[in-house]
Write a protein that binds this DNA or RNA. Structure first.
Length: 492
RNA sequence: GCGGGCGUAGCUCAAUGGUAGAGUGCCAGCCUUCCAAGCUGGCCAUACGGGUUCGAUUCCCGUCGCCCGCUCCA
């Protein structure tokens, strides 16, 4: 596996990804897709759309606005709970989730600071209930403060009440907890009035959920059915990083799949299979993928069950896609907040009910990065290192390059340019004559072009050209008149 | 946001309180009959802003960005 720096260098050098606004020193966690990166990401998104919309009868697409009525985020819970209350140690400056800190302290404790008993692993944490903290908005902060003030670990031996301290140095007290709301705020209209505050959506999902009724009536779909959407989302992450893996502006590929309650668990399983297979069908190595069930405390409060599809990135196993069973939580919330029941009328049972929602939520940038890393290969060819991106044909930014073996022969150049023109009508193709043939091949290898077409002197006689395969480097002669059809066949 | 490290050409890396070098890449020309050939010429850099100094890429401060850790997620 290449290290991340190798990938970052290649991306910069060949025009896959550049640092955003680089001439001004860049902007933290923001990246621009260059000419090849734009093609690659487009292909990833197109493959996803094809798989989850075009080829299915039970799915339709949607493209909702990034800016939405702020009440959406009140209903979804994002305004109140999409935040991490953090505390920081006054001594060692370690930080921890405020609501996890007391228990982290209990687990980290080796001996009682009072009686020196080492049996503290049996210690019990006494804490006021924090259940209300997540749902009650403004009260959440007070609840956290109460949690930190009132909870204590009781030493099993001397019964001393130990107030929670820093789980890292086991000594420092905490600073005042701070709330980070992860939503980007902006202002609708030219005047920055509080009344005009709107948010950049932190997930595309709500755009689908609030359109449930619209899609239902206009598409005449029956349960079970789903809605797919690709779009930008924004989160003020505490710590972005690892190249395009965690950025504050990112693109999601999300599905909300509506099902009859009771059928949700089986449907959830089917989506796990379908989504995992999507990655492997596009050439991602199965060994670099795994499915991991989230533990109860990892899951969002509304989720009944959730799995992560993880990829083995250079920095470790990390999430590509989360597939959650969101139950009827969202549609119920919107029913409550908008005053209109977001329900479905079931013709068979003649009953109204609020559907359950299975949500496969993938990161377009993460998928693009994973496909790039997975495609990266270094090989030894004649004592030289060959760098080749073995992209699936559907993902390769450029499908074919046309190369004249000799550029000082106008007849050859003319034939090659003519082939290029014809290929461009069908897919991304390029012409290149700026180096010797060996270097031209290596260039195309490094950007993952599956086929090179080489025109030589003999081509003028026999009207054939050489088609060279990226992965095997094998060559076949193909009549020039057939090249368009030949490559279309190969690439389909 | 906190702690630590770092920032020299498109990329990889040298050097220096006093003219910033190499490899590679890229461009042009010559040459070249299939896997990073050769020759000639050319292009490109001390992240940004301020300070100290006769003089700063080097020393100091700030900003921005990157990397590692804490934390979090698509």
């Amino acid at each position: 596996m290449p290290d991340l720096d190798t990938i970052v260098n290649l991306c910069k050098r060949r025009g896959f990804v550049f640092p955003s606004s680089e001439i001004y020193g860049g902007l933290e966690s923001c990246w621009d897709y260059g000419p090849l990166g734009a093609e690659l990401k487009r292909n990833v998104k197109a493959a996803w759309w094809r798989s989850v919309v075009q080829e299915r009868d039970d799915m339709v697409g949607l493209d909702a606005a990034i800016l939405m009525n702020p009440r959406v985020w009140k209903a979804s819970g994002h305004i109140d709970t999409f935040s991490d209350p953090l505390v920081e140690c006054k001594k060692c400056h370690a930080r921890a989730r405020a609501d996890h800190a007391p228990d982290m302290y209990r687990k980290a404790l080796r001996e009682c600071p009072k009686c020196r008993s080492t049996k503290v692993k049996d210690a019990v944490l006494h804490a006021p209930s924090a259940d209300g903290a997540r749902e009650q908005g403004a009260d959440a902060k007070a609840a956290i403060r109460r949690l930190l003030a009132e909870s204590y670990v009781e030493c099993p031996k001397c019964k001393e009440h130990l107030p929670p301290r820093c789980p890292k140095c086991l000594d420092g007290e905490f600073m005042e907890p701070r709330q980070f709301n992860l939503m980007f705020k902006t202002f609708m209209g030219p005047v920055e009035e509080e009344a005009a505050v709107v948010y950049l959506r932190p997930e595309t999902a709500q755009g689908i959920l609030v359109n449930f009724a619209n899609v239902l009536t206009s598409s005449r779909k029956k349960l079970p059915f789903g809605v797919a959407q690709i779009g930008k989302a924004f989160r003020n992450e505490v710590s972005p990083g690892n190249f395009t893996f965690r950025t504050r502006e990112f693109e999601q590929m999300e599905i909300e799949y509506f099902v009859k309650p009771g059928t949700d668990e089986e449907c959830h399983k089917r989506w796990l299979d379908d989504r995992l297979r999507w990655y492997t069908d596009l050439g991602m190595r199965r060994d670099n993928l795994r499915l991991r069930q989230q533990t109860a405390d990892e899951r969002a409060h509304y989720a009944k069950d959730c799995f992560d599809i993880e990829y083995q990135f250079p920095m470790g196993w990390s999430e590509l896609e989360g597939i959650a069973n969101r139950t009827d939580y969202d549609l119920k919330q919107h029913s409550k907040f908008c005053g209109k029941e977001q329900s479905y009328f079931d013709d068979e049972t003649k009953t109204h009910y609020i559907p359950y929602v299975i949500e496969p939520s993938a990161g377009a940038d993460r998928a693009t990065l994973a496909f790039l890393i997975d495609a990266y290969h270094e090989e030894q060819v004649r004592e030289e290192k060959r760098v080749v991106l073995k992209f699936h044909k559907a993902l390769a930014p450029i499908k074919a390059a046309v190369l004249p073996l000799l550029k000082n022969r106008p007849e050859i150049v003319e034939v090659a340019r003519d082939i290029t023109r014809r290929l461009k009508r069908n897919f991304m193709a390029v012409y290149d004559d700026t180096a010797a043939i060996g270097k031209l091949y290596r260039r195309q290898d490094e950007i993952g072009t599956p086929y090179c077409v080489t025109v030589d002197v003999q081509s003028l006689e026999d009207k054939q050209a050489t088609v060279r395969d990226r992965d095997t480097m094998e060559q076949v002669r193909v009549p020039i008149a057939d090249i368009e059809a030949f490559l279309k066949e190969k690439l389909s």
